[in-house]
Nucleic acid binder design. Sequence first.
DNA 1: TCTGGGGTCCTAGGACCC
DNA 2: TCTGGGGTCCTAGGACCC
Length: 432
Amino acid sequence: MGGRHRAGAEVLMVRRIALCDVNNFYVSCERVFDPRLEGQPVVVLSNNDGCAVARSAEAKALGVRMGEPWHQVGERGRGVTALSSNYSLYADMSNRVMRILSAAAPATEIYSIDEAFMDLTGVPLPAAFGRALKDRIRQWTGLPVCVGIGSTKTRTKIANHIAKTQPEHGGVFDLEDLSPEAQTGLLGGIGVGKVWGVGRRLQAKLQALGIQTAADLRDAPKALLRSNFGVVLERTARELGGEPCQVLEQIEPARQQIMCSRSFNREVHSYDELRQAVLTYISRAAEKLRAEGSVAEAVQVFIRTNAFKAVPQYARGVTVALTGSSDDTLTLAQAALRGLRAIYRPGYAYKKAGTTLLGLSPKAQRQATLFDDAAARARRDRLNRTLDRVNLRFGRDALRLAGAGGSRSWRMQRQRLTPAYTTDWQALPVAH
DNA sequence: TCTGGGGTCCTAGGACCC
DNA sequence: TCTGGGGTCCTAGGACCC
């Protein structure tokens, strides 16, 4: 075979992307370690056991909605097992899945805790590849996944939706296997709100313009989409038609901010308790910052009352710039407290607080400031490393700032927490 | 009454995602 | 009684500069 033919074949090679995601991820993780939950209605709740953030098929069938506050579910929740979210378990299971995917595909983009895009361009039988992958993940981790295949990320998302909702495909669906007419028929049966990148607001506006289905969006005039909604939705429509606008991001881009925020389990009034919370959150954010080898140039703090309650409302945030970038817990904590003092007002019932680190850059490139004291900085680095090591070994917050408080009765509740089966020796499951 | 044009930077707000 | 947390990108508008 001559070189010219080879080149021709490459030009004709069709772009093919797969999206693999775990079904009802948090619930499925819990089921791996407690098989009695199999076939039962199960939900996993958000922090403070607030909302349903993952639902088994049985729970969905009972009418438990995504993001619904658990206390509002009422009768529909009868017989449903509700669990607190166990993030160390989910993160560990996620790593196992992602390792398998990365080893199997030529290129992978980890998109979220439970899904990844894979470049299958050049893979001869994409659907067969998807089925083999699905079986392997089930066998090696116990988790059920679905695989969608298409020529763009947005089409891949559609294909994944089909794989999940139409069981006859066995959990793997390749949109490109269909004829153009069949594709149009299929997209015509999918509501525009199901398209990746179309949320509730856009859905309502699009419907008002007569754009009801994924096919309608694909075929809508690009100029209209551009002028009414902007460039993002225009790209989504192009992707639906098979024109790639989003590439596979193989290298994880550096994060731009690190946030740590929590709702309290009760209302908090005093500055003292808010200070405890803010110091706890900024410590955690600083830990994440150091773990990824970055420094921050500003700290943002916010506090707010309960927006769901008819009480006097107050919500404010402030950004405090540092003199030079830092990853030092004490420096960041001082900045956070300066911000908190500026925004705190007595007389309100606070429900939530948070801190964000902004202006991140790699520590290796940190600019020295005029008042840099290299020796003091080195001592502080050692202190922070010790802090991180102790907390890794003895559990989060084993060593913490004095102002972060002892009892911390405002902390979030997780009353239905399952054991950290895979990341804590004390919690290893026992085989009988 | 008339009152440039264009660039950059920053922030706030709105939309989305999982 | 009880309503999550952590991110991204885009746009509009104001400040400022030449």
